[in-house]
Design a protein around this nucleic acid. Structure first.
Lengths: 343, 343
DNA sequence: TTCTCTACTGTGAACGCTCACAGAAGCATG
DNA sequence: CATGCTTCTGTGAGCGTTCACAGTAGAGAA
């Protein structure tokens, strides 16, 4: 607005320029910038006008140098290289966190740790204080990097319940057990009795909890657990396909399938289709997540919705709280049954 | 390794500590840190040892304050909110760029501009010099934000050919026209003559070029362009489905379909399936991108592979060059025909 | 010897901000 | 009128680097 400013960059205005323009001191400008306490309305006004006029934007480096904060956080994804962003969930979490942080004017640094080397490099980067905190997403929870960061005193929030329960670390997770219960109850309400499950990996709490919910409801309903109806996968599409195939071989009389992720459920649908089982007429199929895979599947998947938007919002909230000095905390969010064509 | 360091953070070592430890001055340490020119081998050695011993990591804020650089770059995605990461391509580009930058120890800041407000906030953030440069990805090229950044003198590399050719801006793109030519030639080689196209949006160079390639090859082959065989979509799955439906209505005798993105091709497959046309027996279908959508489709899609890994690597290379003072440049990368089940 | 040139090293001054402190002004209380 | 308290403001110091400059030592040339 003020000048033509075409072409190369000119030296940007400093807090000093603003102070001179407003006829006050640096200190007063700084106070206005940081909440405006102990500043007279007149000065407040003058400073804001000067900021608008000069187009001043704070130099974050200078600020960080003295405060010791970087006012930025890292979003760390620890996955084998080829699986970055494989699950559609990562996208949703990433964009959710970015936007939640944007509301606080905090930039998000993306960190991808695929190899051991990258892991080391990133850990070093983080512990050096280049970010104020870390949002950690990794499918195989109980990640060693989490323990390392915690030990270094870096504020940390994990997505999904971590494996080692002893370590005091913040996390946000959906209520896996309750979600699984809802789904199995739903399948029972359709008259299904031979319900198979393709669970998640059993070395993760999420995998364990969903399986537990499944067993719980069946037992409550007076149905004995048949181990031939239980297999586990690794959340990948291929493992869902293989899992369903194994179940069909072990228990050909199954009339429903609870698959612990939508991606695996897609694979299961393929296997069922190939085996000539019609969904939902002969076999009801329920997924988990409510990712895009659920709506893209044919037939569209009945599933348990994980509230990804709330998860990312809570992760950011917890992280900022922790950066602000509060203690780590855990948040469990409720899930929701979404009925579609597959049941 | 050195100390127990459990619990809260301690004051990190500074360049001063390293200098004292190595028995040299700050200046010498700084020189070692920045390339090591004009430093004796002995000093070099001593400084490196001291760095290892103290666990020193440079304070980027202090460095940035004086150099004026931030040694970080932004990855800017300008899309309507709900379409962030819709295309699987974004993921691949994002992870590719992150890793390419990691090799230079440069963090990537993720910036999502969905609304006008976010756009303004982010533009302000960027022009304030908080990042050294921007990697811009947006489906609707000719983005106003590009022009704004260029005018502010911010180093910028776009993914995909930009609309306004006059503006001197760096970009990296796959050879859309050549890719389209390859695909149509492939379809011709299968004996197909009534080849329909669902092009991309015609207000983007990518959309235009793929259509141009299609027309070019047909004309060379002595086949007249039938406008009933030409429709355009917006790269979404739904628009591919709608496009294929329209083509089937306008030209029921079509025997092949070139769909300008894999996602749209998935939609087209659905439409063809519903219309009872068998793929590839009755209708050959070719996609574009070679995204995960291509392998997930049934039947798996023959497609034109965009070299996403090379695209992201080139984007980073061009951006760093531009930050280093070089002029903007354009890079066009070759595509490759990938044959699968759909043709 | 003396001068010049090269290779290397140390030092002070920034960079733009925040923070602690000192001080001023206004107002009520003793 | 002194005293205290509250609200506001300005000032100097310092955060941890880099950069320009001055200075030293040693080698080679005059």
């Amino acid at each position: 607005m003020t000048m033509s400013n075409t072409g190369g960059r000119r030296r940007p205005p400093t807090i000093h320029d603003v102070a001179r323009e407003a006829g006050v001191s640096r200190g007063t400008v700084s106070r206005v910038l940081n909440g405006g306490h102990y500043v007279s309305p007149a000065a407040q006004e003058a400073v804001n006008a000067a900021i608008r006029k000069t187009g001043y934007v704070v130099n974050r480096h200078a600020r960080s140098l003295i405060t010791g904060r970087s006012d930025s956080v890292g979003f760390l994804l620890t996955e084998p290289q080829e699986r970055f962003f494989e699950g559609p969930n990562f996208n949703v979490l990433l964009s959710g966190c970015t936007q939640a942080l944007a509301a606080h004017d905090i930039p998000l640094l993306l960190m991808l740790a695929g190899t051991k080397d990258e892991r080391r490099r990133i850990t070093r980067y983080i512990t050096a204080g280049h970010v104020d905190g870390v949002l950690l997403v990794s499918s195989h929870s109980g990640d060693p990097v989490a323990e390392e960061l915690r030990a270094a005193g870096v504020p940390l929030v994990q997505c999904g319940k971590p494996m080692g329960l002893g370590s005091k670390v913040s996390y946000v997770a959906a209520d896996d057990r309750d979600g699984a219960r809802d789904m199995v109850r739903h399948l029972l309400s359709l008259g299904r009795r031979r319900i198979g499950i393709v669970s998640g990996p059993l070395d993760t709490p999420g995998g364990v909890d969903r399986l537990a919910g499944y067993k719980e409801v069946l037992t409550e309903a007076g149905i004995e657990i048949d181990e031939r109806l239980v297999v586990s996968g690794d959340y990948s599409r291929a493992s869902g396909e293989a899992g369903a195939e194994r179940l069909l071989a072990q228990a050909p009389d199954l009339d429903a399938l609870f698959v612990a992720s939508d991606l695996m459920a897609q694979g299961a649908l393929t296997a069922l289709h190939r085996a000539g089982r019609r969904v939902p007429q002969e076999v009801s199929v329920g997924g988990f997540d409510d990712s895009v895979a659920a709506t893209e599947a044919t037939p569209a998947l009945t599933t348990i919705r994980q509230p990804y938007d709330r998860i990312s919002a809570e992760m950011v909230r917890l992280l900022l709280a922790q950066i602000g000095g509060e203690d780590p905390a855990a948040v469990i969010l409720p899930t929701e049954l979404v009925k579609r064509e597959s049941t």
